[in-house]
Design a protein around this nucleic acid. Sequence first.
DNA 1: CTAAAACTTGACGTCGACGTCAAAGGCAAG
DNA 2: CTTGCCTTTGACGTCGACGTCAAGTTTTAG
Lengths: 130, 130
Amino acid sequence: MRIGELARRTGVSTRALRYYEEQNLLTAERSNTGQRHYPETAVARILLVRELFTAGLSSKTIAELTPCVIDGKATPELLDRLAVERGHIDQHIVDLTHTRDRLDSVIASASASMDTGTPCQPGPASTAPA
Amino acid sequence: MRIGELARRTGVSTRALRYYEEQNLLTAERSNTGQRHYPETAVARILLVRELFTAGLSSKTIAELTPCVIDGKATPELLDRLAVERGHIDQHIVDLTHTRDRLDSVIASASASMDTGTPCQPGPASTAPA
DNA sequence: CTAAAACTTGACGTCGACGTCAAAGGCAAG
DNA sequence: CTTGCCTTTGACGTCGACGTCAAGTTTTAG
């Protein structure tokens, strides 16, 4: 498969795919005229890379970890790095959950104040009041 | 309180604080010589702003929503925006949880393969195999 | 064979959240 | 008054993940 089809099938731009290759997140066979050719497995690989980008990892980190995730090439150091990144993601989840809950209570009290017509005395969830 | 103390107490640089003001995330009194002076409540406000930045909101979005979160100034439109952002955060949590679980299974199978000495046949969690 | 579509490398542009440096003015201590 | 830290505005720099031309090949459709 060539780069255009891979782009369509993954929803990732060709520019991004070339960028991924440049960052060693992806390898490609070359035809004798220089065009990239990808195997079917490239699709899953791209989706993994996207997933890790979405999780906030940098291309450098992804480049270090994908061999482990894809091929099961795991050294103790890579497993450490993997655990560290897992920890970051976990912390991010904790933070996001906290923020979401806070927004929920803001929405709840704001909705209530709109219902009652009161100017919204902030409830116990607000951090602001002195 | 002047900008330096606020910076120390929030762990945010003075540059960032001026940037926040420029983006209308923060207001400051000015002394007759032009120096910024903040009330105690500014500390909590900064922490809220940081929380929302961490949650992936842009300064523009934060500027639109903080009046609602801080002062309870809620119009139906703001409540909508708030709910939309809550949804984004929620989706992000779902994505991150999925990625974390995937990393977990990679770590588990990689650890197992290191224990057994096998070259790590990917388990049911891997998306890669054709 | 020819025109269109797809592909190549190279290089500059973008955007957001600041970092960093510069030049100048403010403020409390000795 | 001067020393030294704090603060001011202004403006350019940065970094990552691409977007966007540009100019030239290659592949495909007719």
